[in-house]
Simulated scan of single mutants.
Amino acid sequence: MRRVIGLMLLLLSVSLSAQALSWAYAFVVLDGRVYEVMDVAVLEGDLGEVVGEVKTMADDMDGSYYGDASNMYPIGTTYREVNGEAMEDVLAVEDESGWKRAEYRHDAPFSMRDHLDKVAYGALAVGVFIFVAIRMKKRHEN
């Protein structure tokens, strides 16, 4: 009986211990590049063209993300160039208090979800090719 109670308590404690991931820093991703959002304001006069926006949110349980994502900023948050800075190094990220500087840190990890559209179009092209080849073969047989 003690074993059953002990096992039940163990299972209960394991199932109740799910926690959200604690991020080291706020980030945004653009075209496979991860930028750390700094607590540094970017002035309106230093803003360049809009270059993207947050399209997906990072999973706060396992840390996974894909595409133009963020771990802190909501979907629709805008990214802009910073005049005089290379976009590969620096972005401006829209924030409720204005614009913040985001600096490149590393490339995003590979995710098949980033390439699903290419895979789908490739599969569609192969399917069309096979369909046309079968139809042409049937016409030649008749």
Rank of each mutant, 00 (worst) to 15 (best):
M1W: 15
R2H: 14
R3A: 13
V4Y: 08
L12A: 12
L12E: 06
Q19F: 08
Q19T: 11
A20K: 15
L21W: 13
L21I: 12
W23V: 09
A24D: 15
Y25E: 07
F27N: 05
G32T: 04
Y35V: 02
E36M: 11
V37R: 00
V37C: 03
D39G: 13
A41G: 09
L43D: 15
G45K: 15
G45D: 15
D46Y: 03
G48E: 04
G48R: 02
V50W: 05
V50Y: 07
G52Q: 01
E53I: 04
T56C: 02
M57P: 00
D59L: 05
M61P: 10
D62L: 06
S64K: 10
G67D: 01
A69L: 01
M72F: 15
Y73Q: 06
R80F: 00
V82Y: 00
E88N: 10
V93W: 03
V93F: 04
E94G: 05
E96T: 13
E96G: 11
E96W: 09
W99F: 06
K100G: 03
S111Y: 07
R113I: 12
D114I: 03
D114R: 01
D117W: 10
K118G: 07
Y121W: 13
Y121D: 14
V126Y: 11
G127R: 00
V128H: 09
I130Y: 09
I134C: 01
I134H: 00
K137Y: 10
R139D: 10
R139C: 06
H140E: 14
H140F: 14
